[in-house]
Each structure stands twice: as structure tokens, then as C-alpha cells.
Design a binder for these strands. Structure first.
Length: 423
RNA sequence: GGAGAGGUGCCGGAGUGGUUGAACGGGACGGUCUCGAAAACCGUUUACCCCUUACGGGGUACGGGGGUUCGAAUCCCCCCCUCUCCGCCA
């Protein structure tokens, strides 16, 4: 979200951002409302000034036991005018607020302009793509063969897009989560958070999922609570409406949560296996930093996420998203994509974004550069480190053997009770 | 779910219709004193919005929203949250 003042003063910049992000929003309507709003404010505040003066007069007259009738009569008309102006002001401000929530963040100058993912730029490739002396299987075949991934029963329980991990599959999931959390807390300086998995509307609006993406969220209507689509939501909202101390920054959090997504509108895409599911596990990193550091922090964030795949020895590439593929709230974003030789595709397993002050302005997270200065908005960032389901798919496909077993990379064995091979 | 209490500034806490942005205490910041520190003393300390190039002026806000009134932190209604007791329960 932006200040009205900022939009007023940077109209063309914001218009271009709306266009480059393939959003549609009538900015002129917003600015027209803003003008009307300021006109009303000027006149209503003058009336309120009169009222305040008069209130003092009335108070004084009453105190001296004098007649205040004339003054009160005079004020009655003024108060009526005030309340009618206040009402139209409120109407206009409500409209402004809902429009303001639909203004997307402005892409950073280093973000390539482009319409869709075809304009994303591969900036890095890591690892050797594995070669097999046999035709590598897709993860769902391996999972079924080993009895660790049960898609059919998942669908029986909850419908398509749900799955169950059984035996060593469940162990692998749990081990991966712990491995990632340990890496980020012990090696990268993140503090672990275990947040609620359901959040209210204010939280969802704060990080920018609402109002735009409501259709993609699971909502428990009775309580108006949303199942978290990512830990970004609860963890970023942790400091909502707070003024942080300068010396507290930067703050690094890492959280495991399951993620729930309806994936509305993506039916028919990636329907096999566990590449696009309604519930998956993810370890998410969230940062609160000073504005001048946020782009360095973004690079570090990406490096922290990459290290997960490097240690597991899963080949991947990093793509810089173009304006058209960039999410609503982000200013810059890198996707990390793991190679999956079974399905012969790169799978997006992490998305690392700098939101600059877009989220912090929505939810009021500030800091004081020093005790005397005015509070400024912090910059927020987050990135998956990394998302499980697709990583498990890549894992199974990369480390499969001809007989259908899966070799566990050394770094993960301590987390699987010393297990060297899933068979 | 039932009964009760409560939500005020950075913190504690007063304030029950009229010069209250808010007593009092603490904290923080600046200063005096000191070789230095502590103590003591003095001073400063909220956020947002509008007008103004600036100096400055004005408005709003006491959990959130609505209402009563010339005037609401104070009265009424709805909602949210916290605490205590009871019930239910992993």
C-alpha cells in the first residue's frame, strides 16, 4: 500500500507499475476522490475549530451560571453541518481505502519488464543434471512403488489434490523440515517461530493476500478465519502496529507451517503427483530490515534458500521474475526451481521477495533510526527455505535407483535415524 | 458456553458529560552538578491528517464501530480482546 500523497506525487510511476504488473485499476478515480476528500477536510475542520472555541465559551458561561442558550442554539446548526460533512467524508474515505488496497507495489528498477513468465530471466544454474542408465520414474511412481506416497487414499479422505505420506515418506517429510529449520536457525541466524495456522482477515489483508486472492484461500466462515497459505502471513503480522527499536533490526524469523491453497483456476495444471496440491509443508524465512539494507538482505535470503538444495545436492536454477510475473505486493522476486528428472521439469520450490515498505505500511511496522527521529517503515522480505512437496518430488526423482529405491543424501541421514536408502 | 471484572500515552496508573492530549509515578532523551558515575535538580518527550515554499496554524485519536448531546475518555447499543470463577474438552 502507498500513501495517497506518494501516489499523488508519483502518478505516472504508479500507473506504469499497474500496467507492467497486468493489473487494472483506475488511478484517476482514486486521485479525484482524494481531491474531493481534501476539500471536505478543509471545510469541516474550519467548522470544528469554531465548535471547539464555542464549547469553551459555553463551558465558561455555564461555570459562571450565565445563560448559554444563544450560543448553544448557534452551535446546533454548525454541528449538523459537521456531521453531514463527516458522513460524506467517511463515504469517500471508504472508497479510497478499498481502491488503495488494490494498488500494486512498484517493481524495483532492476526487474525486467515483461508480460508473463516467458520474460523471466535465468540468472544462475547450479549442479549437474543427473544422468540415468534407465528411464527415470516420476515421483508418484517411485512413491507408490515404495509405499510411501498414497495419492489415492489422500483423495479418498479429502478429494483430489490431497495426499498421504506413509512410513518412510512421513519420516522423510519430518526429517526435511527439521533439517531446514536447523540449518536456518543454527547456520543463518534465524529465530524459530511456531505461529497459528489460522489467521483473521486483518492479517490476510496486511500481507496483501486480500482482497485480491480471496478465492484462493480456505476460509472457515463461522469464525471468519483463513487457513494460512504460507507462514509469511502469520509471521510478518507478528509485528503489526509496532514501532521496533533500531537496534533490534534486522529481525530474522523462520517458521514451519503447512500451507493451504485452493488453487482455484488452476484445474488441469500439474494434476499428477504432488506438484500442485491443496496442502503442503513449507519452511519460510521472514525478515524485517532497515530500508537501506533490504536489497542486500534479499540476496542473502536467496543464498540461504539455495543452500538447502546445495546441501541436499539437488540441481536447481534461479530466475528473476519479470514485472508481469511478479506478485501484487512484491518489488522484486527470485524463484528457485529444483530439477526433477522424472517429470523432466524445473519445479518452483522457493520464492524470495523484497516487499520494501509495501506490507509494513499496510500493517504499521516502523522503527526509529535513532530515539529522536521520526519513525520510518521497515522493509519486509520473505522466502521459502524451501517448500516441501515439490522438493520431495525432486528428491525422489533425483536420487532414485534403477530398482526403484531412493538413496538418502548423507546430510539428511541423521534426520532419518541413519537411514541410507528408502526401500 | 455461563457469571463477573477490565481494556486510557513508551510503561504503570488516575480520571464518570464542559478550557483533559489527558493528573501522579516510572522510563527514555537533553542539561546542571561530578575526575567519572550514582543521587539530586531543571527541561523535553504520542501518532496520524489538512493548510503553508517556509515560519507556523488547524483537526482527529483514550480497544473497534455506531448512537445520544451545543459538547463524550466519561452516558447508551453492537463487536473484539484480556483476566477470574464455573462448565465442557485434546
Amino acid at each position: 500500500m502507498f500513501d495517497l500523497k506518494f501516489i499523488r506525487e508519483n502518478k505516472e510511476l504508479v500507473k506504469k507499475a499497474i500496467q507492467n504488473k497486468n493489473e487494472s485499476l483506475n488511478l484517476d478515480e482514486l486521485l479525484g476522490l482524494d481531491e474531493k476528500r481534501r476539500e471536505i477536510i478543509s471545510s469541516v475542520e474550519e467548522l470544528k475549530r469554531q465548535r471547539n472555541l464555542s464549547n469553551q465559551t459555553i463551558a465558561l458561561l455555564k461555570k459562571e451560571k450565565k445563560d448559554a442558550k444563544a450560543e448553544i442554539e448557534k452551535m446546533r446548526g454548525v454541528s449538523e453541518k459537521i456531521s453531514s460533512l463527516d458522513n460524506s467524508l467517511k463515504e469517500i474515505e471508504d472508497k479510497i481505502d478499498s481502491l488503495l488496497l488494490r494498488v500494486p507495489n512498484i517493481p524495483h528498477s532492476t526487474v525486467p519488464v515483461g508480460f508473463d513468465e516467458n520474460s523471466n530471466v535465468v540468472i544462475k544454474e547450479w549442479g549437474e543434471l543427473p544422468e540415468f542408465s534407465f528411464e527415470p520414474r516420476a515421483h508418484w511412481e517411485i512413491g507408490e512403488l515404495l509405499g510411501i506416497l498414497d495419492l489415492a487414499r489422500g483423495a479418498k479422505l479429502s478429494g483430489s489434490g490431497f495426499y498421504a505420506l506413509i512410513g518412510k515418506g512421513a519420516l522423510l517429510e519430518r526429517g526435511l523440515i527439521n533439517f531446514m529449520l536447523d540449518l536456518h536457525t543454527k547456520e543463518h541466524g534465524y529465530k524459530e517461530v511456531w505461529p497459528p495456522f489460522m489467521v483473521n482477515r486483518a492479517s490476510m489483508t496486511g500481507t496483501g493476500q486480500l482482497p485480491k486472492l480471496e478465492e484462493d484461500m480456505y476460509l472457515c466462515e463461522k469464525d471468519d478465519l483463513f487457513l494460512v497459505p504460507t507462514a509469511e502471513v502469520p509471521v510478518t503480522n507478528l509485528h503489526r502496529d509496532e514501532i521496533l527499536k533500531s537496534e533490534e533490526l534486522p529481525i530474522y524469523y523462520v517458521a514451519y507451517t503447512p500451507c493451504f491453497r485452493r488453487e482455484a483456476g488452476s484445474y488441469g495444471k500439474d494434476t499428477r503427483g504432488i506438484l500442485r496440491v491443496h496442502q503442503f509443508d513449507k519452511v519460510e524465512m521472514v525478515k524485517f530490515v532497515k530500508p537501506e539494507d533490504s536489497y542486500d538482505e534479499l540476496e542473502k535470503l536467496v543464498a540461504n534458500a539455495e543452500e538447502v538444495l546445495q546441501l541436499l545436492n539437488i540441481p536447481y536454477r534461479v530466475r528473476l521474475l519479470c514485472t508481469g510475473d511478479l506478485s501484487f505486493a512484491a518489488a522484486k522476486c527470485y524463484d528457485i526451481e529444483a530439477w526433477a528428472p522424472g517429470v523432466k521439469k524445473y519445479l518452483e520450490v522457493s520464492s524470495c521477495s523484497n516487499y520494501e515498505a509495501f506490507q509494513s505500511r499496510r500493517i504499521g511496522i516502523k522503527f526509529k533510526p535513532d530515539p529522536k527521529s521520526k519513525a520510518e517503515y521497515v522493509h519486509t522480505l520473505n522466502g521459502s527455505g524451501v517448500a516441501l512437496a515439490r522438493t520431495v518430488a525432486a528428491f525422489l526423482e533425483n536420487f532414485q535407483t534403477e530398482k526403484g529405491t531412493v538413496v538418502v543424501p548423507e546430510v539428511l541421514r541423521p534426520y532419518l535415524g541413519g537411514l541410507e536408502e528408502i526401500s
